[in-house]
Simulated scan of single mutants.
Amino acid sequence: MKYIADLHTHTIVSGHAYSTLMENINEAYKKGIKILGSTEHGPTMPGGPHLFHFGNLKVIPRKVNGVIVLRGCEANIIDYKGNLDIPDKIQKSLDLIVASLHDVCLKPGSIDENTEALLNVMENPYVDIIGHLGNPVFPIHKEKVIKKAKEKNIIIEINNSSFVGSREGSKENCSEIVRLCKKYGTYLTLNSDSHFATCIGDFKVAEEIINSVGISEDQIINTSEKKLINYLKEKGKAIDICIE
């Protein structure tokens, strides 16, 4: 499959990433990535940016060096009620929100508590993607979460960085998650979660998992510019982006 977008990437602004936004954009262009989601960590993450960063993302041009830039955030789920660490006003202004569980922002709970956090965050109309769902540090009732994602039209991420140095033990969980997504018709996206520019667009291991399950291209949101932008527009986002 051909992937035209990487929807989960970080820059030096996140505090523990090592490339600039322009370096990420240039790498995306070089690799044929047409749409780049710039999704810095929310402010609860140690070293993360101030809320002003997200409030001022409007200064970034829509297209830079031929790459469409989506102004986003990887927001931290901060309690089992599914609250995020960025206020509604800022959530509403963004093109893209990846909602993720991180153990430095929320202590892992029981399987029921972790599942509750995800089910609740998917009630938030501004959330688009659930990040690195296969993390074994946060065990969940996978089928409940995937069914809810389908119901709420929320995308499940298969995060390539989980298999190449982060979140050890994610691969088996992600294989089961992909199978459930296939069963229920839930949208998927393959993302790099890049913390260094050369990782932009690298979905190698994630793609192996997708291929082993036999997911249709129609079910993967980042295989078509039109499919992705139409998805966002249906949610009232990215309305000024035109795809011919």
Rank of each mutant, 00 (worst) to 15 (best):
F138G: 10
F138I: 11
P139C: 07
P139S: 05
I140A: 04
I140H: 03
H141E: 11
K142T: 12
E143M: 13
K144A: 13
K144E: 15
K144W: 03
K144D: 14
V145Y: 03
V145E: 01
V145M: 07
V145I: 15
I146R: 07
K147M: 15
K147I: 15
K147P: 00
K147Y: 09
K148C: 12
K148W: 05
K148M: 15
K150R: 15
E151R: 11
E151I: 09
N153L: 06
N153K: 13
N153I: 06
I154M: 07
I154S: 05
I155V: 15
I155C: 05
I155E: 01
E157R: 11
E157D: 15
I158P: 13
I158W: 10
N159R: 02
N160Q: 09
S161H: 13
S162Q: 05
S162V: 09
F163G: 09
F163A: 12
F163C: 14
F163K: 10
V164L: 14
V164S: 15
V164F: 06
G165D: 06
G165I: 12
S166I: 01
R167N: 02
R167V: 01
R167D: 02
E168F: 09
G169K: 07
G169D: 01
S170E: 00
S170G: 02
K171D: 00
K171I: 11
K171A: 12
K171F: 03
E172T: 12
E172K: 14
E172H: 01
E172D: 10
E172C: 01
E172G: 02
N173P: 00
N173C: 10
N173G: 06
S175N: 14
S175D: 06
E176Y: 03
E176Q: 11
E176W: 00
I177E: 00
I177Y: 03
I177A: 07
I177S: 07
V178W: 05
R179P: 00
R179Y: 14
R179V: 01
L180C: 11
L180Y: 12
L180G: 05
L180S: 10
K182Q: 08
K182Y: 14
K182T: 07
K183C: 10
K183N: 04
Y184A: 08
G185D: 08
G185T: 12
G185P: 06
G185M: 08
